[in-house]
């Protein structure tokens, strides 16, 4: 299991090529990459603030639960903070398991929990101003299925 909270750019394909290497009991690998989206065409920067210390602990707790619940053979979570440009990768999760159902479910569980239980806050900086991204009720509701 690897957790990385970083301000640096990362290359999802390079991360994937090294993931779950040497684990012959892995039959399925699922990855998800979140990308900075510019819906209105005026986004300059996505600024991500986080709570150093708590962030790493919260992600470790979520990833540890996923690993146990779906018997993952490996698990990777990368999440960036700082100033990101549209099109850049914000975060990535990768899960490895014996079979695909476990790998898919664990990845979805990780995404649902990272959205509303990992202490990150996004602020969109546009040509005309800056606004904090509001949490959605849907994101909180998504946790109830687990």
């Amino acid at each position: 299991m690897e957790i990385r909270v970083t301000s640096d750019l990362f290359d999802p394909s390079a991360e994937l090529s090294g993931f779950a290497k040497g684990r012959m009991d892995t039959g399925a690998v699922v990855t998800f990459t979140g990308v900075v989206r510019d819906t209105a065409g005026d986004l300059k920067t996505m600024r991500i603030e986080h709570y150093p210390g708590m962030t790493e602990k919260a992600i470790a707790k979520i990833a540890g639960e996923a690993q146990t619940r779906w018997s993952l053979t490996d698990c990777l979570v990368i999440h960036r903070y700082g100033d990101l440009a549209p099109g850049e990768a914000i975060m990535m999760v990768a899960t490895a398991a014996g079979h695909r159902a476990e790998a898919f479910e664990a990845a979805e569980f990780l995404m649902d929990y990272l959205k509303s239980r990992a202490p990150f806050w996004k602020k969109e900086i546009t040509e005309t101003g800056a606004e904090w991204v509001a949490a959605k009720d849907d994101d909180e509701d998504a946790l109830s299925r687990w």
């Binding site: 975060m91 990272l114 959205k115 509001a134």
Partner: peptide, 8 residues
């Protein structure tokens, strides 16, 4: 203290 989190 902080607002609801918006990770992912």
């Amino acid at each position: 203290f902080f607002p609801p989190m918006t990770g992912g």
